[in-house]
Lab assay of single mutants.
Amino acid sequence: DHWEIRVGDITIHLKDVDEEIIRWVEEALRNGDDLEEIKRWVEEVLR
């Protein structure tokens, strides 16, 4: 699977990601969370 999350001008590409993570990231972006923080979290989860 390949996911693209778009929020404003930001697009995040994710592969082999659980839908729950996608929802979490979308929510975090909508809440204005720091992008670097989100990326770190996702990388942590995917490890």
Results as ranks from 00 to 15, higher is better:
D1I: 12
E36M: 09
G32M: 11
L35V: 11
E27Y: 15
E36T: 08
W41I: 07
V7L: 09
K15R: 13
W3V: 05
D9Y: 08
E43C: 15
E36W: 11
W24R: 07
I38S: 00
D1G: 14
D1Q: 13
I10K: 09
V7E: 02
R30D: 03
W3T: 04
R47S: 11
N31S: 08
R30V: 05
E44W: 13
L29Q: 01
D18A: 13
D18Q: 10
D16N: 13
G32W: 10
V7A: 04
G32V: 09
E26N: 14
W3F: 07
G8S: 05
L29F: 08
V42L: 14
E44A: 12
R30S: 05
V17N: 03
D9I: 11
L29H: 01
G32K: 05
G8C: 02
R6F: 03
E43G: 06
I10R: 09
R40S: 06
N31E: 03
V42K: 00
E27Q: 13
A28F: 09
K15I: 11
W41C: 06
T11W: 12
V45H: 10
W24K: 08
E26G: 11
V45G: 03
I12D: 01
R47G: 12
E27R: 15
I5L: 13
L14C: 04
E4M: 12
V25L: 09
E44I: 11
E37G: 10
K15W: 11
E19S: 12
R23K: 09
L35K: 04
L46V: 04
V7I: 12
K15H: 11
L14S: 04
W41H: 08
G8T: 03
E36K: 06
E19T: 11
I21R: 03
V42F: 06
E43N: 10
T11C: 03
T11V: 07
K39S: 05
K39E: 03
N31P: 05
N31K: 12
V17H: 07
L35R: 04
G8W: 08
R23M: 07
L14P: 02
H2P: 11
T11H: 07
D9Q: 10
D9G: 08
I22M: 12
I5D: 01
R40I: 04
V25F: 05
G8I: 06
I12C: 02
T11K: 05
R23W: 05
T11S: 09
W41S: 02
L14T: 02
I22V: 10
N31D: 02
I12A: 02
W3M: 04
I38A: 01
V45S: 06
A28G: 04
V25G: 00
E26M: 15
D34R: 11
D16G: 13
L35T: 05
W41K: 06
I5H: 02
D18P: 13
D1E: 11
I22P: 01
H2I: 13
D16Y: 10
W41L: 05
I10A: 07
D1F: 14
K15E: 06
D34T: 14
K15S: 05
I10E: 04
I38P: 00
H13D: 08
I38H: 00
H2A: 09
V25H: 00
I12K: 02
A28N: 04
D9N: 08
K39F: 14
L46D: 00
E37R: 12
K39M: 14
V42H: 00
N31W: 07
D33T: 14
G8E: 04
I10W: 14
D33F: 13
E37C: 05
N31V: 06
E19L: 10
K39L: 12
I12T: 02
E4G: 06
I10D: 03
L46P: 00
E19G: 07
I10Y: 13
I38L: 07
R47K: 09
R47I: 09
I38F: 13
L29E: 01
E20C: 00
D34A: 10
E27W: 15
I5S: 01
D33G: 11
V42I: 12
W3E: 02
E19F: 10
I22D: 00
